[in-house]
Amino acid sequence: MRENKKSFLIINRKAPYGSSAARDALDVALTFSVFEQPLSLLFMDDAVLQLLPNHQANTIGQKNLSANLAMLEMYDIDQLYVCRQALSERGIRPDQISLNITLLDTHAIAALIKQQDQVLSF
């Protein structure tokens, strides 16, 4: 190996249900942390809906994503960034989100992406 650490950013763009993207991204995030790679998660567009509490996924025959999101903390994934505009467009207040998040505007998002060695988008 030429280097054994790289910084990674996972960009989430999709709603919690309707496609497997949210769960796929979380599975990747947990795997990165097992390999102890520096990792940040960014929630944009409909992915901010993943962060709302009290999903009742069982009513549509899906597994609840919130349990996986709660695992982020256990895996020491604490660099959670959220697009401020995506929240306000959907009428979500930051205080509705129980995870410890950092709000970013579009310029700050560009800077965050630029800092990373690798970016994966879901």
Partner: peptide
């Protein structure tokens, strides 16, 4: 998925 992580570590660019 470890193969994805390893690819990210060893590659200069990962394109999705």
């Amino acid at each position: 998925l470890g193969q994805l992580v390893e690819a990210g570590i060893l590659s200069d660019r990962v394109v999705t």
